[in-house]
């Protein structure tokens, strides 16, 4: 199955939010279909664990459904669904990150030396190997960020969310979000430059 970057258009949001305002249950499958991919992708990037990512994503929608039933229709009609769902996802992944041991494919060894530079060169077309290493090294660098910086960096520089949306998702002032995303960017860049040396 082709994996497309499913980012809901604003009019989709309006349509879904209004449908939710009318009847949560009748609109809910459309919400799941529209946002399951962006949510699971965000969660997987935060957790770097695909199996747990799906479980957490399931929990995101279960909690969303429960919350929607508690909101009055006018509040449902106003929802910005992507940031609202990502906020639930962010809260759940924060708990999951806190509860889980650090990822086993962590960038650094105990003595602080980088694993990336030591990776065995696999045989195969040179370009492909370099390309794979390039994104993996971004992934490794992202994994090194604290959860707060990681969320801000991924949303801003990977998912291209606006600062407003990120602020809404993380429940933080725009200024804080800008600072976190920027610090995340600097840290990832520094990590990659260190690898290149």
């Amino acid at each position: 199955m082709a994996v497309a970057c499913a980012v809901a258009e604003p009019d989709t949001n309006t349509m879904l939010a209004e449908a939710l305002a009318r009847d949560v249950d009748r609109a809910f499958e459309d919400v799941v279909i529209a946002f399951r991919q962006p949510v699971v992708t965000f969660v997987a990037r935060m957790l770097r664990d695909d199996a747990r990512a799906e479980d957490v994503t399931q929990e995101v929608f279960v909690r969303a459904h429960r919350a929607l039933h508690g909101y009055p229709p006018e509040r449902r009609a106003e929802l910005r669904l992507r940031s609202w769902l990502l906020a639930i996802a962010h809260n759940l992944t924060r708990n999951a990150v806190r509860d889980a041991p650090p990822p086993s494919d962590s960038l650094e060894y105990d003595d602080g030396t980088s694993r990336v530079g030591l990776t065995d060169r696999q045989p195969g077309p040179e370009g492909e190997v370099l390309r794979a290493e390039a994104w993996q090294s971004v992934g490794d660098a992202v994994a090194q960020l604290s959860p707060a910086l990681r969320a801000a960096f991924v949303m801003r520089y990977v998912d291209d969310l606006s600062y407003d949306e990120i602020a809404e998702t993380l429940g933080q002032p725009v200024g804080t979000v800008k600072a976190s995303a920027h610090r995340g960017l600097l840290a990832v860049r520094a990590q990659l430059e260190m690898n290149d040396d």
Binding site: R36, R45, D50, A134, S137
Partner: peptide, 14 residues
């Protein structure tokens, strides 16, 4: 392009 590759490679579906 590194970030683009990272974005594409880490897209997930349920």
């Amino acid at each position: 392009s590194n970030v683009h590759d990272y974005r594409d490679a880490t897209l997930r579906s349920v």
